[in-house]
């Protein structure tokens, strides 16, 4: 059983993560309206989205403390759909 102090620290950690997520939501909205080239907006907006997703997965889904086998199960489908995208690029995206 965790001590009261540890318990309060864990709860504060979850709330701190939520605050950062809120900051990143605002950052994403600001980035999408910046007067810069579209490719830069794309990189910024999706970089921020990836950061948010990583924070949720590591802290709320506890991936940072998970066993290697769970990481492998999560990464395999991501690699598969990256492969899917690379396979489809010549047929769909480059076939204009």
């Amino acid at each position: 059983m965790e001590t009261l102090l540890e318990s309060a620290a864990t709860r504060s950690h979850y709330i701190a993560i939520w605050r950062w997520l809120m900051v990143l939501v605002i950052a994403g909205l600001v980035a999408s309206a910046l007067p810069v080239p579209k490719i830069l907006i794309l990189v910024l907006v999706f970089g921020i989205a990836a950061l948010k997703a990583t924070m949720v997965m590591r802290n709320y889904m506890h991936l940072k403390a998970e066993n290697l086998i769970i990481h492998a199960i999560a990464i395999i489908p991501i690699l598969l759909f990256i492969g899917l995208a690379l396979t489809l690029i010549p047929d769909i995206a480059l076939h204009r």
Binding site: I70, A74, I76, I78, F81, L84, L88, I89, H95
Partner: peptide, 27 residues
Amino acid sequence: IALWWFLASEIMVFGGFITCYVLFRYA
């Protein structure tokens, strides 16, 4: 482990849609 396998299959479902969306939008 079972739940993560299930989530992995869900990643494929949504990942497939998102990939198709991005490619079609670009094309």
